[in-house]
Amino acid sequence: MDFLEVIKSIFTLSLAYATVRICISIVFAGMGEMITERSGVFNMGVEGIMLMGAFTAAVVAHFTGSPWIGLLAAAVVGVLIGLIFAFVAITVKANQAIAGLAIYLLCVGLSGYLLQVLFAHGGNSPKVETLPKIHFGFMEHIPVIKDVFNDQSVLMFPALLLPIILYIVFYKTPWGTWLRAAGENPKALAVVGKNPITIRYIAVLAGSFFAGIGGAYLSISQTSIFSEKMVNGRGFIALAAVIFGNVKPAGVFAACMFFGFMDALQFTLQTVIPDQYFPREVFMALPYILTLLILGGFIKRSSGPADISNPYEKESR
């Protein structure tokens, strides 16, 4: 095959469409984790919360027939799990990474267990109704845009708006100042009469809320089924995106898009390049290896909040 032909068959508009489609769940999880980390808490349980979100959305959509109720339930379950994490990490002051790991294991076990209890056999839920895709008549005539953004999930709009909203909240409102202060210098925040613990709680719950939605997107929009390992590291990739994007809305959004692109590329390469020329496992491992290279600082980044991962202690006398 001609080299140029191959390149052309890889970098198509459908690759761009797939990038947007795939990155939506990572954007939700990444934006949520960014809020959490800004407040000084590192929630490694995002992967697990996404998994429970995906599970809850599919199950509730199956039993009520409405994916919208499924979406709502996923967000609620996300917040509830976030509450457990927040209690252990903030109130009990446990090691945040280990608490996150516990939440991850707990969610993997719980979703797997309940899946078997509810649907008896197999690692999948039944097929469920999905959230609508949005089709704009006016877009039909705009080249490129119509191929990339038309007929995407309804959740694409909040996903694209979220970074902008969070930018405004972070830098133009008092809430943003308090949030950032909780992560940079909680003691100074306490001096001005705001309780860093309350703010960290809210930040963790907000992060878990979005992680739940990001997970729900996978089972009731990107696909129409829940399967046991469906999140497949996206939560961890969202964590990497937050680090890569310097815990700032624009940076994290760009990082999420990048990881979405890598994943889409991986799928495309699998179909374009025959297996005997190049093993598909290499492409499947690619997003993780790239993430590590990025984390390793082979691509420049600066540091996050100063007080990240430290439990807040009141000033001792």
Partner: peptide, 11 residues
């Protein structure tokens, strides 16, 4: 699931 709960309690 048991693993997760145990780690959570140990944490």
């Amino acid at each position: 699931l048991i693993n997760g709960i145990v780690v959570l309690f140990v944490a």
